[in-house]
Simulated scan of single mutants.
Amino acid sequence: MAPQLFQKMLQKSNLRTTHENESFMNHVSDLLQGFPTLYSYGLLGNLVTGVQAAGARLMHIKLKQVKAEQLAGNTGGFFNIIGQLVITAWTGFLAFRRLIPIGAINSTYSLSYNILNSIAAFGPTLTEMRALQPVFDKYQFAQADDGRHKQQLQSSETAITLDHLSYRYAGAQQDALAPISLTIQPHAKIAIQGPSGAGKSTLLGVIAGKLPDYQGSIKLQNIELNQLAPSSLISRVLYVDQAPHIFNGTVRENLELGKTYSDEQLSDALAKADLLADVNRMPQALDTLVGESGKMFSGGQRQRLALTRAFLRMDKRSIMLFDESTNSLSKESAIQIENTFLSIAQLTVIFVSHQIHAENSSLFSKIITL
Rank of each mutant, 00 (worst) to 15 (best):
H187V: 08
H187W: 05
A188K: 14
A188D: 14
K189N: 10
K189H: 13
I190A: 10
A191G: 09
A191R: 10
A191W: 03
I192C: 10
I192R: 06
Q193V: 15
G194P: 08
G194L: 04
G194A: 05
G194V: 07
G194I: 07
G197Q: 08
G197E: 09
G197V: 13
A198W: 00
A198L: 02
A198E: 07
G199W: 04
G199Q: 08
G199I: 08
K200L: 04
K200W: 00
K200A: 04
K200S: 02
K200V: 03
S201R: 01
S201Y: 00
S201D: 01
S201G: 03
S201L: 02
T202F: 01
T202L: 04
T202Q: 02
T202K: 01
T202V: 11
T202S: 12
L203Y: 08
L203S: 07
L203N: 06
L203P: 03
L204Y: 07
G205C: 08
G205S: 10
G205H: 05
G205F: 05
V206R: 00
V206K: 00
V206S: 00
I207G: 12
A208S: 13
A208H: 04
A208W: 02
A208R: 03
A208L: 06
G209C: 13
G209E: 11
G209M: 09
K210M: 13
K210D: 14
K210H: 09
K210A: 14
L211S: 11
L211E: 13
P212C: 15
P212G: 13
P212K: 14
D213H: 10
Y214Q: 12
Y214I: 15
Q215V: 08
Q215E: 09
Q215G: 12
Q215P: 05
Q215K: 10
G216L: 12
G216Y: 04
S217Q: 09
S217V: 07
I218K: 01
I218F: 02
I218E: 01
I218H: 01
I218M: 06
K219L: 13
K219T: 12
K219Y: 01
L220F: 05
L220C: 11
L220Q: 06
L220R: 03
